[in-house]
Amino acid sequence: MNGTVNPTELAENPPRSQSKPWFLGSWTILVYAFLYLPLGVLVLMSLNDSTILSLPFKGVTLDWYRLTFGDRAIQQTLINSLKVASSATLLATGFGLLSAFAIYRYQFFGKNTFRIALNLPILLPGIVTGVAMLAYFSDLGLELSLLTVILGHAVFGIPVALGPILTRLTQFPRSLEEAAYDLGARPGEVFRDVIFPYIRSAVISGALLAFTLSFDEVVVTIFLTGRDNTLPMEIWGRLRTNITPEIAAVATLISAASGAIVVMSQFITQEERS
């Protein structure tokens, strides 16, 4: 086949056209079904008029949602989770932005090591971060609380926020910045009026990613939480003791809310780019 091809042979075997992606298309549909099957089951279970979180399906009820809205423990832990996730996101995005800037702008000794080291919390399993910080805080005599959870989440949030910000920064046309300086802008003004608008969508998506990961986090939280619990910890506790369809209702509500936020943010950033 690698030798010369004579014209007659070419006429007999016309160049292969790429086959229609039937197989790929059906495979894709199957994978989506697989991805969404557990979610569908959960939504169904949250409507099930039965006291156990299992089949058979005994009819539709909204009681579990009513119960969820009146559940004090769920409310309290939801508030805790929102507090933890927003504080951790603020810290992580701030430090992520600073380190992205240091990496993008400056040459310094050990830059590559710095970059890899910053990514360690997401390259290594969460349990390593969890037990390492637990041992550290206990050696320092720091009592475990929501604060230690925030510190833990801010650590793995930094690489999460750094990723998209740095990717966007490296695409930034340096000439724009030089032009701003030539026109007499101060460094602060250059950042605020020239660079930041360019990377804003990346900062938003990095922050959003850090927020949702923190909001859903269990493995690090288990080791760092004190008396106050986050919502996933409350769910974790209930999954092992009293399992009612209320958990499914809680999960459905969280999924719907975070799904809506993600879709909205996607919409905003897309609009901005076009």
Partner: peptide
Amino acid sequence: GLYATLLPPLLWMTLLYFVPIVLL
């Protein structure tokens, strides 16, 4: 500028992640 952008995240990660890993 380098110190202002590099030091805060480096210090934060050292005190809350690298030292704990070494301790582990």
